[in-house]
Design a protein around this nucleic acid. Structure first.
Length: 531
DNA sequence: CTGGAAAGCGCC
DNA sequence: AAAGGGCGCTTTCCAG
């Protein structure tokens, strides 16, 4: 049996191969229909359907085909991945919309499958689609359904505490400024800093509307006046308050007492997942207050959280892709990579200082992102020519990386796209742009995307391996979160050790790169402890 | 009133 | 020259 599915306005419309259409409003009926594992379900946004089906014990066939994700794998940055756009692009038909058009839309989904499959085959991405992205669909649905427990009382306590602190800071800031103004308004703040207090604007960057007041600028200004530092402190706390402390409780599902984030599988240009409502991929971790918020993400009594994150996965991928002998050597010896770069760039003499390591870390990341000397100079607060020297020294010590960067950009210009380890493709038409700025941006993207995107490939495969292993071993543990290089599980407290061992083994064994993959695993009562 | 741009910032 | 890659969310501010 073949079923076309179109999810319109959150309502699943099912089309049987006999052509009969119907709106499945009763979830039980839908689930039983989909319980037929022989069914081949074709449609868009199948994850929503899987969440529904899983609730009633149903499955979505053996070989689901999601048209949106197929389109995304073919060309992630294209504007429309919806059925209407795909029908236009691949079938040359204009699809009707609305409640009466569901049958036509489901039919289009069925017709699109063979077309999209041929396209995927043509760019050798069929395996990525069929063996990685489609199996991930069910895993993400399960993760969303499980959700994560949030200690709302803890957040409420933080809220009162922060409210008091913020109120005090507002008074202090207004007193220091000599007037009351909206601290959260960059234009008003700009007036206070540069017109009223007449702070020096030397070296202050400009945005589109005038002088910037962002964190870098305020840090510089802090040397002239006590106000900027206070603003920074206020902003940090206000950010935590409005984005997390006061918002998260409202996103807790009253039936489960948990937050059920939505993972998006066809959004990020590199192949990464994204997360929303709430975004659990940007929960604070740095700083004392950040960790207090993270600690509000917990496991229920008797259970605990296990977190496993890849160590330096992007730099390891750079080592693999470039084959640079020094970089490969460093990882094979399991060295501290930032210390190694510090030694290479600054010489082994004088020993490793905290400053040197911090600088080396900035350079290591800068290379991945295609950083120029100006940015490095700003970040390290050093003269521009010194930054130029460091970058030159880096490339002379890691010549394989230099060659890789050059070859990657050249190949991208020739082909018009770059690819990841699993043939995820990203087209970069801007490489041929007249506008130098746009072209350089595309060149940085050409270098970064294979690295970031390959990391995304690997962790997606890892998710599948770990999920299968946990089921095989009958471990009472469920994956609940993915944060790009980290997986989080909830499990029975006494199972933490075997879960950790299984997770580590599956993650480290996900692929044989020319350097080993390393995973750090921790467990705890809450996410801060487990990190 | 809503929508969107801009600025800013949390994470990897 | 305006900058390192990728996201999502908040607030402000202004236009419709």
């Amino acid at each position: 049996m073949e079923i076309g599915v179109s999810v319109v306005e959150g309502e699943a419309v099912v089309l049987g191969s006999d052509g009969a259409t119907g709106t499945a409003q009763i979830l039980g009926a839908l689930a039983s229909m989909l319980h037929d594992e022989a069914a081949e379900v074709v449609g868009e946004d199948l994850k929503a359907l899987m969440v529904v089906a899983a609730r009633s014990g149903g499955v979505i066939g053996r070989r689901p085909f999601d048209t949106r994700i197929a389109s995304y794998v073919l060309n992630p940055t294209l504007e429309g991945h919806d059925l209407t756009a795909l029908a236009e692009r691949f079938l040359g038909t204009t699809l009707p919309t609305g409640p009466d058009a569901t049958g036509a839309r489901a039919t289009a989904a069925l017709r699109l499958r063979p077309v999209l499959e041929r396209e995927l085959e043509a760019c050798e991405a069929l395996s990525l689609f069929r063996d990685v992205e489609m199996p991930l669909l069910q895993i993400l649905a399960d993760m969303e359904r499980r959700g994560m427990l949030v200690d709302v009382a803890m957040l409420a306590a933080l809220s009162s505490e922060y409210a008091g602190k913020l109120a005090g800071m507002v008074e202090e800031i207004h007193a220091l400024a000599g007037e009351t103004f909206n601290i959260q308004s960059p234009p008003q703040l700009r007036t206070v800093l540069f017109e009223k207090l007449k702070l020096s604007t030397r070296g202050v960057r400009r945005g589109k509307t005038g002088l910037s007041t962002d964190v870098d600028v305020l840090r510089k200004l802090a040397k002239q006046h006590p106000l900027p530092a206070l603003i920074l402190e206020y902003r940090a706390l206000a950010k935590l308050m409005s984005t997390y402390v006061d918002t998260l409780p409202g996103l807790v599902n009253p039936e489960t007492g948990r937050v059920h984030t939505c993972f998006h599988q066809a959004v990020a240009a590199t192949g990464r997942l994204s997360s929303s409502d709430p975004n659990l991929q940007n929960i604070p971790v740095r700083g004392e207050e950040g960790r207090r918020i993270r600690a509000a993400f917990t496991a229920p009594p008797g259970r605990c959280l296990v977190s496993a994150d890849y160590s330096q996965i992007e730099l390891r991928i750079l080592a693999h892709l470039s084959g640079d002998s020094a970089l490969v050597d460093a990882f094979r010896r399991n060295e501290d990579i930032h210390a190694r770069t510090a030694a290479e760039v600054f010489g082994g003499l004088g020993g490793l200082t905290a400053d040197k390591r911090r600088a080396a870390k900035a350079i290591n990341f800068g290379i991945i992102y295609g950083m120029g000397p100006a940015r490095l100079a700003r970040e390290l607060e050093i003269p521009h020519d010194e930054a130029v020297g460091y970058i030159a020294q880096y490339f002379s010590r890691y010549p394989g990386v230099r060659a890789y960067v050059g070859e990657t950009v050249a190949s991208a210009r020739r082909l018009g796209y770059v690819q990841t380890l699993m043939n995820r493709r990203r087209y970069l038409p801007e490489l041929g742009a007249q506008d130098g700025g746009a072209r350089q941006f595309a060149e940085r993207t050409a270098v970064n995307t294979p690295i970031q995107g390959s990391a995304a490939d690997l962790i997606k495969v890892a998710m599948q391996r770990v999920d299968r292993r946990l089921r095989q071993d009958r471990l009472d543990a469920g994956m609940i979160l993915q944060v790009h290089d980290e997986l989080v599980f909830e499990c029975a407290e006494e199972m933490a050790d075997p879960v950790a061992a299984a997770v580590r083994a599956e993650m480290e064994g996900v692929a044989q790169l020319i350097v080993p993959l390393r995973v750090d695993v921790h467990s705890g009562r809450n996410w801060a402890e487990a990190h």
